[in-house]
Amino acid sequence: MNNYFQDTKELEAIGHEALQSASKALSKILGYDVRIKLASAFMLSPINLMEVLGKESAFDVATAYSKLKGMLSGIILLAIPLNDAAETLKNMILRTLGVSMLNEEIATDLFKEIANIFFGAIATSLYNKYKIIVSYSVPKVVIDNFMAILDNIVTLYIMEFDELVIYDAEIVGENTPRIKILIIPEEGRKFSRSELVAGDFR
């Protein structure tokens, strides 16, 4: 499995900074301390996406995704195992709002807002570290089997891009739900270490 991965120190640096920033933003909004730590960052070609992620991710996920625009275009996607997502959202809402009942519509909106915070944090980190300017569309939510979503992504991009970036993270203290953040560059752009350093995504 490690054969697919490359040296991803810069990606890890972005991930660490983005997740710290997302933790702070979430803590502020929710009113209690939320810590999200990076477990790993790696790069993967689309043809290997299902083989590698599929083995560990054959489960239903709550997924929020946005279209990236600017110096880096493509898709950014946040996926949380469905059981963890529902539980975490319930806990967050109950602790924040002090209500006993959770409406699915409110939970979905909260999930979109959380994704918004994550995507914003990553966009900010990309700018802070490499002066890469990106914007993203309002997050949409889809809940399905992760493999089916990956199938969609592979079909979309197998002919057009070389590698995508995957951040594996966890929320500390919330039964440590795993989070996957995928950044999928469009149109054959190579999200490589050297280009990150150079900041050349145009």
Partner: peptide
């Protein structure tokens, strides 16, 4: 041939399939 992610490009691939 589904369009799980709501992007125009996606519709094109699934529809073509």
């Amino acid at each position: 041939g589904a369009n799980i992610l709501d992007f125009a490009k996606n519709i094109s691939v699934s529809t073509r399939n």
